[in-house]
Design a protein around this nucleic acid. Sequence first.
DNA 1: AATGCGGGGTT
DNA 2: AACCCAGCATT
Length: 349
Amino acid sequence: MEQDIAKRILRWYRKEGRDLPWRRISDPYAIWVSEIMLQQTQVATVIPYYERFMAAFPTVTDLAHAPLGTVLKVWEGLGYYARARNLHRAAKMILERHQGTIPGEIMALTSLPGIGRSTAGAIVSIAYGKKAPILDGNVRRVLCRLFAIRKNPSLTPVQKKLWGLSEGLVPGKDPRSFNQALMDLGASICTPNDPDCPACCLKPFCLAYQKGIQKSLPIKSPGKKIPHYHVAVGVIWKGKKVLITQRPLEGLLGGLWEFPGGKLKEGETPAIAVAREIREELKITVSVGDLADIVRHAYSHFRITLHAFHCRYRDGAPRTLNPYRWVSPGELERFAFPAANRKIIAALK
DNA sequence: AATGCGGGGTT
DNA sequence: AACCCAGCATT
């Protein structure tokens, strides 16, 4: 049974599998980089970032020796910036602990920052050809349908069940192709909304298809309301230079640079808020001028409307918790900014 | 067990 | 507007 499933998927994969940049090489470092980028991020989005990253940091040694700011700049726009910070930190650890070789064991891999059970399974199987299961969004969906699992797959006992199923399916022979095939099947046939069951090689085994419930699986968690904030920021000019500040290394958008500002308080106008935030955060005074841009931006767990004002520096030396810089507009390209701030920068030109 | 963490594509 | 994506870390 399991062997039949594996055989069918592998046969399908040989004909219909995707040709992706990281499948053309066997360098474990490249596989690792691709797997980190692919966490919660679609293949099409990752491809150009992967190419640029590998050109900038061809080896784990290059990555470990690069300044974090350079790594974040290459990562800029990809999101989930802790991935970049963890990748950089793990590269240093791999030089020290593993003499520059990406580990080939699950335990050694999961002890590195940014590598969990699924990414470790992917690296071990894809880079080293060892038998290990994976469980990403694609595989979870395929398994929920194949075995008609009608419980929310985010529940711990259901996750445990899914890991067991994934482990039971992965064959000793060519686990590398099998895991990639399972993901490809989820991405191209067993899609979230409208799976192409007639074209699926697992149709004869799929319990959800037999019951006609494939479109209602997997069960999804109830969506939660996301708040909407108004934020005011200042593009503070002193001559031909503007002030930027760096966010703390941990937390949201950690390590990225931005125009200073903050959330509006109840009953406050954006112009009042930006003056207050700059006074509080930087201990300087500015005069607030024209509106530079209004940006709407969606994060995963909240939305913001960003009001950006041209400001003129008046008085005081900045005293901030975090680093700040006065830079020319041209120099803004050298720093990593959140996407919402990039929209403001685009509007300045 | 629940939550924080980006950005873009799709529907 | 809601959902999804080659998930992980933290609490």
